Amino acid sequence: MNKDTIEGNWKQLKGKVKEQWGKLTDDDFDVIAGKRDQLLGRIQERHGISKDEAETQVKEWEARDGRTPAGLWYEKS
Rank of each mutant, 00 (worst) to 15 (best):
Asn2Glu: 15
Asn2Gly: 10
Asn2Ile: 14
Lys3Asp: 11
Lys3Met: 12
Lys3Thr: 08
Asp4Glu: 13
Asp4Trp: 09
Thr5Ser: 05
Thr5Trp: 04
Ile6Ala: 05
Ile6Phe: 04
Glu7Ser: 10
Glu7Tyr: 10
Glu7Lys: 13
Glu7Ala: 10
Glu7Gln: 13
Glu7Trp: 09
Asn9Ala: 12
Asn9Lys: 14
Trp10Ser: 03
Lys11Phe: 08
Lys11Ser: 01
Lys11Glu: 06
Gln12Ser: 10
Leu13Thr: 00
Leu13His: 00
Leu13Val: 00
Leu13Tyr: 01
Leu13Ala: 00
Lys14Tyr: 04
Gly15Ala: 04
Lys16Trp: 04
Lys16Gln: 04
Lys16Leu: 08
Val17Cys: 01
Lys18Cys: 01
Lys18Trp: 04
Lys18Asp: 01
Glu19Cys: 03
Gln20Ile: 05
Trp21Cys: 02
Gly22Arg: 09
Gly22Ser: 10
Gly22Asp: 08
Lys23Leu: 15
Lys23His: 06
Lys23Val: 11
Leu24Cys: 01
Thr25Ile: 08
Thr25Val: 08
Thr25Ser: 07
Phe29Trp: 03
Asp30His: 14
Asp30Leu: 15
Val31Phe: 04
Gly34Ala: 02
Gly34Phe: 01
Gly34Ser: 02
Lys35Asp: 07
Lys35Met: 09
Arg36Leu: 10
Arg36Lys: 12
Arg36Trp: 08
Leu40Asp: 09
Gly41Phe: 10
Gly41Cys: 09
Arg42Ile: 01
Arg42Lys: 08
Arg42Tyr: 01
Ile43His: 07
Ile43Phe: 10
Ile43Glu: 11
Gln44Ile: 06
Glu45Ile: 11
Arg46Ile: 11
Arg46Gln: 12
His47Ala: 01
His47Ile: 03
His47Thr: 03
Ile49Tyr: 04
Ile49Leu: 05
Ser50Leu: 12
Lys51Glu: 06
Lys51Pro: 00
Asp52Thr: 15
Asp52Lys: 14
Glu53Leu: 09
Glu53Phe: 07
Glu53Trp: 07
Glu53Ser: 06
Glu53Tyr: 09
Ala54Leu: 13
Ala54Val: 07
Glu55Asn: 11
Gln57Arg: 15
Gln57His: 14
Val58Ile: 15
Val58Ser: 03
Lys59Phe: 08
Glu60Asp: 14
Arg64Glu: 12
Arg64Met: 12
Arg64Lys: 14
Gly66Phe: 10
Gly66Met: 12
Arg67Leu: 15
Thr68Gly: 13
Pro69Arg: 12
Pro69Gly: 05
Ala70Ser: 15
Gly71Asp: 10
Gly71Thr: 06
Gly71Cys: 01
Trp73Pro: 00
Tyr74Cys: 02
Glu75Arg: 02
Glu75Phe: 02
Glu75Ile: 02
